[in-house]
Design a protein around this nucleic acid. Structure first.
Lengths: 129, 129, 129, 129
DNA sequence: GTGGTCTAGACCACT
DNA sequence: GTGGTCTAGACCACC
């Protein structure tokens, strides 16, 4: 897929990039799972600042069009949804487990952990009042 | 022991590995002296880069959970008291705060958080038995 | 504070960086609260990869010598007691043995080693003054 | 002369062998010209892989502590100085500095460090006798 | 701009 | 085959 930008246009450059990629994905010329060119590579190709491309990619990730994979690059995303009751619980567990494993490793037992959590929550409540 | 990792999470992959191994050791499902899977083997199994596993193992070594033997592998270390009381409290607070703020952000109130923590700890205790 | 590194040495580069910063902090030539050079800046200055410096700084953070502030930089941490008496002894022995065996290997006898250690410590003390 | 190795140590086994032989030679308990046990004999005695002993002997030959005679075996070499006085001092400092900075960071002061070094050297002397 | 994570692949030391 | 170090370069989160 070929991306073209015109610097003279009233449409912001990053918007031009976003729109063309979105169109490419919608028409299937960018298939799901396909790797996008790196931020710097595309910036170089279009003779743009890397931040501009980064901003465009970020917007596309926010909209669920692309996915980023740490250290690998950006890829065309499959669909998804967020924030059901189950999802909330899943997210809670996700942050609770590291906390509990650290606490247990430090030598605190279950009872102590609960007490510490209560103490901390009381302290937070006071601050907020 | 089975380790699972989700690449989309906000929790770094190496931290997920650390937490699960810590948990395995704390509950005794990884007995003292047991050899861990090799860095490359675990990396291959989880489809991760070997450096990511190496980083996780290194973190566990400096926390006294594992020991490494050059050219032989990693082993579960004998439990020992490493930190002063004050330092343990400091480290507990350090991991508790992000957990609590995330939980509160997700809309759980103080009482619910305590209940969830207790529930989770009970579940962990059952695994130990 | 000036940091120097020799690439040919058997001592890993990141360890050399760690040791020199530790020394600078211990002698007070790096006062508490002082900001460290940024990872990239120090990497550039020493002509090393940024990851190598990041690894050294990370080691100093977990030893309580430095603190990191996301997006701001690394700072010299206030001194604090981290380890139990037993753990301190354990760690001391761990680094003393390789040193002594190397010294004996070089042909220094016990008495000479003690003298050399005293000499070196006196020199370090002078720097502190 | 009796050689002992501990497999759990962080010090490589071949290094333990090297150090003990070197120490034996230095103290005269292994006189000049004496034949060393064969690689396989020593490997069998210590229940180690023959490669490990071969490597230790090779290191000792490289450092001028032993001499090999094709088809006959290894012998304690006549003493000769390999390193210049300056080089010896440089190498000593190179391994001493990391040790001292670690010790100081752990909270040991100069006097304590000297005492610990003396204690450790005494213990080593007893083992070798 | 800062640190933090991850990948890829190199080379070395030890068993 | 094991771990350990280092480089190069990507993206991420925060300020």
């Amino acid at each position: 897929m070929r991306i073209q930008v015109t610097t003279g246009s009233s449409i912001p450059i990053y918007r031009q990039v976003v729109d063309q990629i979105r169109h490419g994905v919608a028409t299937g010329s960018m298939p799901v799972g396909e790797q996008m060119p790196s931020v710097r590579a595309l910036a170089g190709e279009l003779v743009l600042n890397a931040n501009t491309i980064a901003k465009a990619y970020a917007a596309l990730v926010r909209d669920g069009v692309l996915e980023s994979q740490q250290g690998r690059g950006y890829f065309v995303a499959a669909r998804r949804e967020i924030f059901t009751r189950k999802e909330r619980q899943r997210r809670l567990d996700e942050v609770m487990d590291p906390f509990l494993s650290e606490a247990l490793t430090l030598g605190f037992d279950a009872e102590q952990i609960v007490v510490e959590v209560q103490k901390r929550l009381e302290k937070l409540a006071q601050v907020t009042d």
